[in-house]
Design a protein around this nucleic acid. Sequence first.
RNA 1: GCUCCAAUAGCUCAAUCGGUAGAGCAGCUGACUCUUAAUCAGUUGGUUCGGGGUUCAAGUCCCUGUUGGAGCACCA
Length: 607
Amino acid sequence: MPERAQPKPQPRHGAENAQEPPSCQATGGGGAEARGPGRHQAGQRLGLPDPQLCASPLQHGQGPSHGRGNQRHHRRAGGRAEPLRARLPAGSCPQPAPRRQVKGPDMSTPEEAGSRLSPVLQQRLEKLDRLRELGVEPWPVGFARDTRVAEMLAAFDELKESGRGFTLAGRLTALRRMGKATFAELMDGGEKVQLYIQRDGVGADTYDVFKLFDIGDIIGVEGKAFTTRSGEMSVEVRAIQLLSKNLHPLPASKEKDGQVFDEFSDKDQRYRQRYVDLLVNPSTRTVFEQRSRIVSAIRRHLEGQGYLEVETPVLQPIYGGAAARPFVTHHNALDMKLYLRIANELYLKRLVVGGFDRIFEFARDFRNEGMDRFHNPEFTQMECYAAYQDYQDMMVLVENLISGLAVELHGSTRVMLKGHEVELAAPWRRATMMDLLREATGADLLDMDEAALRALAKRLHVEVEANDGWARLVDTLFGELVEPKLIQPTFVCDYPREMSPLARRHRQDPRLVERFEAVVAGKELCNSFTELNDPIDQRQRFLDQQALIQRGDDEAHPLDEDFLRALETGMPPTAGLGLGIDRLVMLLTGAESIRDVIFFPTMRPQA
RNA sequence: GCUCCAAUAGCUCAAUCGGUAGAGCAGCUGACUCUUAAUCAGUUGGUUCGGGGUUCAAGUCCCUGUUGGAGCACCA
């Protein structure tokens, strides 16, 4: 379904903020005056005065400031590099807390009015008041963290031996309070460490403040390494400071010996509030870390082979490079229809014409089609092109690339994928599509006409569409009978010509094109061909596609005259490859749904 | 687009044949200075996804809408 044109460019919040003077000027630590549009969202939603008004980074180190809030801020800002202890409220800090005169629906925004705050949120808001009464700013600027939790754990023995102090920052993920002492857990970058906080260690006043901390708060601590009686590497905390107050409690899942209790498992909420999912489900974080490593490794591999990373248009006047329905949008100034790309292939080939012999792009592509656990409307594909190569060369690239990724991620080319043990080490099996079909059906499909294929499909109980052409029938039979059974990596070679309007005619059989798909664990991994660089042939293929459009195929390629002109200028013999990143990540991480490998998958807006 | 399933406290889940909405965790109050799903005592918290219907009575049955999941279709 075509999207309607955007009504008018709306100013974005970020841009607005950037132009605004620091919001500190608006404050005297006061209560509930109306604020500008850039105010803190939580405060806005909760109908609260903005606690950040006193904390503009631009104030830092700048001339005299005004107002109570600024005084407090200044005292803290000066302490950025000082020992933490010096910055903690010493009880001698008669900072009048800004008080919330009224709370609840009365001060809410119109949308919020009438909806009640949950009791838990109510309590968190009251804690904010109490913190401020103790002179604690719930959202202070900066923190002089000098050690990451992972570093600290790695260097634990040395740190313990030397007794050297360090500072850590992160999120509180557990609290085990025992009166005048507390064990807590601090999470930083997916790594957790236990904290031990004693009243006598941090001081009674600080300990009172600490009692107002919750799971989910972000804190900074200063301390030193020590080992508990039960042998757990821990931090004996000497000073502790609130860095960001949590208002929405994190899901109360707990974990012991790898077993998770009350896991945050509602998929809807996990996708919509991915930040929560990432905080409480370590495996979610791991998947995305692996995704990043995969992308990074591909980039390194290609660059190592002399490929240049390029960028090409997402907004295209004519879409192409794949068989799919596009998203449509409108450009106001040019008053023209534009399509979000379904592929970048035609642009990358223009660059090959332009003399870039080896190029690649990680392209976000958009296809206006159904969604399921293998399809998201926007997805990422890596396409690369190499002049003076053919699809045989691309097979070598792929098998080396993927086996390298397996080693990078799993330390071995032999990996478990979808319950099968798969050997990804090069070389992979090479087989033609027709040979594989002959193995499966006993028939030579290349010699069969459309009617014979239909009869075959019927005999083998494969459902086909009434208006499917010869190539489509072959493809359907292959997808049903062969592909799911290809567990070990296989290059399926030489596809029917009419299925691949951008691929070069096979050098030995004009009914075929020089194309392969790599299939692993029953799933297609990538698609590659010797590119069609004969502009006369390419024009005829486009015309054939127009015939398909006439026949009702709304995914056939539109004719791209500008692309033809590029080919007419002369493209070297070239090989190209498209690799679906999301599915690759699914395969290598064992994710069941594409939504598990995309941070923010497309979702219907909530009612 | 179609079929089936699901939605109950902040989170994970109960609730018998249609008969007073519960538990654990989180939270709150108190005790506890080596705990680790901390423990112990007390306690708050509900538009049972929205709307309609049947019924003396609906979380439960019926209709409808919303969102999600699984599958089908399409596709990568």
